[in-house]
């Protein structure tokens, strides 16, 4: 009963409007300013193309772009999937064994101090011009936030809750399945949301080092031939891809965690404005 009112609430057009209109307006304002600046100061297109130029270039290159976008998306998704798998397995391992927690956790933190861009050429040397170096770069960038948030989520179970289940005769396995895992899912999703915003960047870096297809390759080629407008097209597509992935994750989270989005006692009391 309450959950349905909750869903209605989140789909309320007025709320959607109030959430998305301000950033959208600011973005439009920024694009307009950019357009005016390029026009007022007569900036050369190879230095800074106007938004209209970028749009035109995008339409012009659309046949060319579709394969590049698909390739980047493929690398991103495979790399992210690998990161998710490895991240969750590592988190559970760390959670189950106090020894592994002590041994692994500091090493994981240290691993993040290695600049991943410098690893990419090595990966190409080892794995060749295949899709693997890109997948691994994406996975390396994504797994860390997933491990950290999931470990925290698993260890944040309420001790009294654990005692209660124990008093009911639950085994360790049952406690893990019934209390600790579901309690860690919101934290896992936080990690996934951070990770997914890195993932496209990871694929682009992987492609810069050596690839024949992908948005990163398209970007390099465009820059080398001074097609700055195409560089901007690639940048816009990268950020669109990231936004798309972020949205998918957010929707999945809402669907997976209806309880997390059930606010206390669903009635909302508001003052009625504008009647005086």
């Amino acid at each position: 009963m309450n959950s349905t009112t909750q869903q209605k609430r989140s789909a309320d057009p007025r709320r959607l409007w109030s959430a998305y209109a301000p950033p959208a307006a600011l973005l439009v304002l920024f694009i307009l300013a950019w357009q005016c600046a390029t026009w007022l100061w007569q900036i050369e297109s190879y230095l800074l193309p106007s938004p209209a130029d970028v749009l035109r270039a995008g339409v012009e290159a659309r046949g060319l772009l579709s394969n590049h976008v698909q390739q980047t998306l493929r690398e991103t998704l495979l790399g992210f999937g690998l990161a998710l798998l490895v991240g969750v397995v590592l988190a559970v391992t760390i959670d189950l064994s106090a020894f592994l927690r002590k041994a692994l956790y500091p090493l994981l933190v240290i691993s993040q101090t290695v600049p991943i861009m410098t690893l990419a050429p090595l990966l190409v040397i080892w794995l060749g011009y295949t899709i693997w170096p890109k997948i691994i770069v994406v996975a390396l960038m994504c797994f860390f936030p997933i491990v950290v948030t999931t470990v925290d989520g698993l260890s944040s179970a309420d001790p009294e809750m654990l005692a209660l289940l124990q008093s009911m005769g639950a085994t360790r396995r049952q406690v893990f399945r019934i209390v600790r895992v579901p309690g860690a899912i919101p934290a896992l999703f936080s990690g996934i949301r951070i990770a997914v915003t890195y993932s496209v960047v990871g694929a682009i870096i992987g492609e810069w080092v050596g690839a024949s297809q992908g948005l990163g390759v398209f970007m390099l080629r465009a820059a080398n031939s001074f097609r700055t407008d195409w560089v901007f097209v690639a940048i816009a597509l990268c950020s669109l891809l990231s936004i798309l992935l972020f949205t998918v994750v957010s929707v999945a989270e809402r669907l997976a965690l209806p309880w997390y989005y059930t606010s206390t006692r669903a009635e909302r009391w508001e003052e009625i404005e504008g009647e005086a």
Binding site: D158, M161, L164, S167, I178, W259, Y260
Partner: peptide, 16 residues
């Protein structure tokens, strides 16, 4: 363990 029904001070319902 498992022989009595214990109810602690806090309700400790699983929120999910």
């Amino acid at each position: 363990l498992g022989r009595v029904g214990l109810m602690p001070q806090r309700d400790l319902l699983l929120p999910w």
